[in-house]
Measured scan of single mutants.
Amino acid sequence: HMTFVALYDYVASGETDLSFKKGERLQIVNNTEGDWWLAHSLTTGRTGYISSNYVAPSD
Rank of each mutant, 00 (worst) to 15 (best):
I50E: 00
K22G: 03
Y8I: 13
W36N: 08
G14P: 02
G23K: 00
I50T: 01
Y10F: 08
W36Q: 10
M2N: 10
F4H: 04
N30R: 08
V55F: 11
M2T: 11
V55W: 06
L38V: 06
L26H: 05
I50L: 06
S52M: 12
F20E: 01
L18E: 01
D9Q: 01
P57H: 09
F4S: 01
T44M: 03
S58Q: 12
A12Q: 05
R25V: 15
H1K: 10
A12P: 04
P57Q: 10
W36G: 05
L7A: 03
S52V: 09
S13A: 11
A56G: 11
A12Y: 02
T32L: 11
N53A: 15
D9P: 03
A39Q: 00
T3R: 03
E15R: 08
N30K: 09
T32H: 09
F20N: 00
H1A: 12
E15A: 12
T3W: 13
E24H: 03
V29T: 06
W36Y: 13
Q27T: 11
Y54I: 06
V29D: 05
L38D: 13
E33M: 13
I50H: 00
L7P: 02
L26C: 03
S51M: 15
T3C: 11
G45D: 05
Y49W: 14
S52R: 12
Q27F: 13
L38K: 03
V5S: 03
D9M: 08
T32A: 10
G14H: 13
L42R: 02
G48W: 03
K21M: 10
T47F: 10
G45T: 02
H1W: 13
N30L: 09
T16G: 14
S58R: 06
G48I: 02
T47I: 09
Q27S: 08
K22P: 01
D17H: 14
S19F: 04
I28W: 02
S19G: 06
Q27M: 13
S13I: 14
T16Q: 13
E24F: 06
W37M: 06
W37C: 04
A12N: 04
T16S: 13
W36M: 13
V55N: 02
W37D: 00
K22D: 02
L42F: 08
G34P: 12
Y54H: 11
A6I: 01
L18K: 01
W37S: 01
G45W: 02
A56W: 09
E33F: 10
T16P: 05
E33A: 11
A56M: 12
Y10I: 06
A6L: 03
N31W: 14
L42Q: 06
A6E: 00
F20T: 01
Y54F: 12
D59F: 13
W37R: 02
N31H: 11
W36T: 11
A56P: 05
S58W: 15
A39M: 13
A56H: 07
L18Q: 01
E15H: 10
G45L: 05
I50N: 01
N31T: 13
V29K: 07
N53M: 14
A6R: 00
D17I: 08
Y8P: 00
H40R: 14
D35E: 13
S58V: 15
I50P: 00
G34R: 08
L38E: 04
S52W: 07
K21H: 09
T16E: 12
A12F: 03
D9A: 04
G48K: 01
W37H: 02
T16I: 08
N53Q: 14
V11C: 12
N30S: 14
L18P: 05
T47A: 05
D59C: 14
V55T: 03
A39K: 00
S51H: 15
T3L: 14
I28H: 01
G48F: 04
Y8E: 09
V29M: 12
H1D: 11
V5E: 06
F20K: 00
G34S: 09
Q27V: 15
E24K: 01
Y49D: 02
S58I: 15
T44N: 04
S13W: 08
G48E: 02
I50V: 13
N30D: 14
A6G: 04
V55I: 09
I28F: 03
Y49Q: 03
L26G: 04
G14M: 11
T3F: 14
T3G: 05
K22N: 02
V29C: 13
L42Y: 06
H40D: 01
Y10D: 00
F20P: 00
I28Q: 15
G45M: 04
L42V: 07
L18W: 03
S58K: 07
D9F: 04
H40E: 08
S41G: 03
F4D: 00
I28T: 03
Y10R: 05
V11M: 09
A56D: 06
W36E: 05
V55Y: 05
D9G: 06
D17F: 15
S51Y: 15
A39P: 00
L42P: 07
V55C: 05
K22W: 04
V5W: 04
T32V: 10
E15W: 07
R46F: 08
N53V: 13
L42E: 06
E15D: 13
G14I: 13
Y54E: 03
Y49C: 10
Y10Q: 02
S41W: 01
S41L: 02
T32F: 09
G14A: 14
W37L: 07
T43P: 01
Y49N: 03
G34Q: 10
L42I: 09
L26S: 00
F20D: 00
V5R: 02
I28R: 05
V29P: 04
Q27E: 13
A39R: 00
N53C: 15
A56V: 14
D9S: 06
G48Q: 03
T47W: 13
G23C: 07
T32K: 13
A56L: 10
L26K: 00
I50Q: 00
M2Q: 13
T43K: 07
S52G: 07
F4N: 00
T16V: 09
T16C: 15
A12K: 05
W37Q: 03
V55L: 09
E15S: 12
L7R: 06
V5F: 06
G34A: 11
I28Y: 02
E33S: 12
T3D: 07
E33R: 12
G23Y: 03
V11I: 12
E24T: 01
A12H: 04
T3Y: 14
L7T: 05
A12I: 03
R25P: 07
D35L: 09
T43I: 08
M2P: 12
